[in-house]
Design a protein around this nucleic acid. Sequence first.
RNA 1: GGCGACUUAGCCAAGUGGUAAGGCAGCGGUCUGCAAAACCGCGAUCCCGGGUUCGAUUCCCGGAGUCGCCUCCA
Length: 471
Amino acid sequence: MTQRIYNSMSERVEEFTPLEPGRVGMYTCGPTVHDRAQIGNLRTFLAEDLLRRQLEYQGLEVTQVMNITDVDDKIITKARAAGQSLEEFTAPYVAAFFRDLELLAVEPAAVYPRATQYIPQMLQLVQRLLDNGSAYVSEGSVYFRISSFPAYGKLTHLDTAGLRSGASGRVDADEYEAKEQVRDFALWKAGEPGDLASWPSPYGWGRPGWHLECSAMSMDRLGETFDIHCGGVDNKFPHHENEIAQSEAATGKQFVRYWVHAEHLLVGGVKMAKSLGNFITLETLMEHGHDPMAVRFLLLTGAHYRHKLQFQEELLEAAERDVSRLATFWRRCLESEGLPGESDELVGLATTGLERFDRAMEDDLRLPDAVAALFDLVREGNRLMDAGRVGVDGARAALAALAAADRRLGVIERRALRADFLSPEEKALLERREAARRARDFALSDQLRDQLLGMGIQVEDTKAGTRWRRA
RNA sequence: GGCGACUUAGCCAAGUGGUAAGGCAGCGGUCUGCAAAACCGCGAUCCCGGGUUCGAUUCCCGGAGUCGCCUCCA
């Protein structure tokens, strides 16, 4: 019943034991709000949601912190171009981000601190680093002196001395002139007074370097050593490596105990990214008629979180069928309450099904495997129900197992219970069809059924009577 | 150039030293007035070549291909 999780630092699956029994501190790198999140970003947040839900399922009390980066070069450039303040420019993207999370049933973090609210804490951290010789001031900026931190590179296992600076072709060499060494990174960037992103500091006006905020916020909210730090794989280097350096150099303590990284979402074989122009947002998918629960299901179960996931919009159709199948079975269990049936093979199947699900989840969140157990349960449950061999106990047990799984999966109940109501016109159509069908006027009955389907209502005739659902 | 990951049926994708989950799609049935939902049946020499082993898809070596990171990145 203990959780196992892959730790990027050790490069192996480890047993998870929190620093403080029963409580977990979890920091998750959040969005930089210069644009709408694309679904590759969302995949990472969903993986983090899955981990958090799993830990809570195991009875742990999780304090999750997710930062919002509301000051960085892109934001500054765009805000300046729009003639807006940082706050004005980022507000709509912050709102859109929270809306996406809510649509995807992501459980809210305890706090969402923003970089612009943490300037004092960041400056304190900079001062500590200057005081102990880990940093230096140069031309109004402050840089971290990597040569002072021998463990640098321990997360990504890179030999930074041999790094080919600029190998990615993304860096302008001029940027390095003020540094002692090319690999040193900025803690504080010199700026101009009165600029839309400039704060006073002992080193002059300026703004924080990107890595600094995560160290300042995480240690402020979770302590100088905390349990879990998550993010996308592309944040391992340099972001997380730099966080480790500046945090551990400042405190002399281990910064993070377990590093958890989610893999990329690929499209057409390559990483989905804003800069590549191959990105897609949740909003777009919804405009295409896709259900957010299908998006959640696909991003979470389409592949294990540490594996790349090939996104194709057609896969969402399959995901929709999957979610619908689970939700249909859920409702069928609800409706089975009170049926006589025989007791009750389904009770045992529900138990073993959930055990299989839990076992897979405990082993580094192997959700794709866990879901297979769920589908086995659904198939068996349907089979037994078709045969009239399910009673109250079985239905309840199956429902309980599904609910337990859904505490992690997070799609079944939401889909099963989603607002289902009929407009007066729809209701009238349904009643007319009922009357026609009773009169065995199948031509009219079928025509009305087609009409309803065109309106998104699937009509089903069962032994127990006619029912309907939103297709 | 350095480091790392991946390669399993039409598609997505689990997994194991003893001949391979699940889903979607497809085909054939059952049920239904017809559908829908559901159920039953049908599909894989696990990238290639060596090696270790009684036995490898699973471990080791080599090769091919794809992808990621190497200071914007989830």
